[in-house]
């Protein structure tokens, strides 16, 4: 049975009234085949699907990605923890107030008021550009786990994009690390996914693997979901061989 159809059946049985549900009265406990779905469903129950800008979303509604297959379901959508944005937010706050002290610099103080105004306009436009860039890069640098693949979307600056996709069955091992005070306090970390043929990423991140989910929240739950997907994949392969 396709994993996507299992998923839909689980959501139906959980959220639809029984009269609309195909399964009707019979509510059998989930079998081991449904472990993955139950984990994701648990996250949905805990409110992990909304709002759309959250950094770990389970089955986010209305989310699609490039090269998505027709029957492919997005299980997890991740981006860096919001606390990783503090550096540029703090820098912006400092730079925002800097023009108040321009009078202390003799070179800037000696220009005419109109040129000073032009300088201030350029300063704040540049600052707005900096903010928008960082906001876009944070929002669209995402990691996606579907019922078939994992996808790592990396954007760098204005003109560089790197998208890696890999089938679940090619994953050899998955682990995570939490290093530093902030990652312990806010519970985020790096999830490293090892493939059968280990390769370093060709991109500019110098990551330990082509698939490193950087600074994602609740890395333990992410590892659990991927681990269960791997188990399910192995089971499906085994059953396929024995048929």
């Amino acid at each position: 049975m396709r994993r996507g159809s299992i998923l839909i059946r689980m959501i139906e049985s959980r959220y639809m009234p029984e009269v609309f549900s195909k399964s009707g009265k019979s509510k059998s406990p989930p079998s081991t085949d449904l472990r993955v779905v139950s984990e994701v469903k648990r996250m949905v129950d805990e409110g992990y699907c909304e709002p759309p800008w959250r950094s770990l979303a389970a089955m986010p509604p209305g989310t699609k990605f490039e090269a998505q297959n027709d029957d492919e379901k997005v299980l997890l959508l991740m981006r860096k923890h919001p606390v990783t944005n503090l550096w540029w937010i703090g820098l912006t706050a400092v730079l925002f107030g800097l023009p108040l002290f321009w009078g202390e610099f003799p070179l800037i103080a000696s220009v005419t008021p109109m040129v000073g105004l032009a300088l201030a306009v350029f300063w704040y436009l540049g600052l707005a550009f900096f903010v928008i860039q960082n906001l876009l890069l944070w929002f669209y640098n995402v990691y996606i786990v579907t019922d078939e693949r994992i996808i790592d979307v990396d954007f760098f600056g204005l003109l560089y994009k790197n998208v890696n996709a890999m089938q679940i069955r090619k994953i050899e091992d998955v682990n995570y690390s939490q290093v530093g005070m902030f990652s312990s306090i806010f519970n985020y970390g790096n999830v490293v996914i090892q493939t059968a043929a280990e390769q370093r990423s060709a991109d500019r991140t110098e990551e330990a693997s082509a698939f490193t989910f950087e600074a994602v929240p609740n890395p333990d739950r992410v590892v659990k979901v991927i681990g269960e997907l791997m188990e399910q994949e192995e089971k499906e392969e085994y059953e396929g061989r024995t048929k």
Binding site: P52, P60, T63, K64, F65, E66, Y140, V153, F155, V163
Partner: peptide
């Protein structure tokens, strides 16, 4: 625009 094409989200 290109980013939205790669990842299409409601917002």
């Amino acid at each position: 625009s290109l980013m939205d094409k790669v990842l299409n989200v409601p917002i």
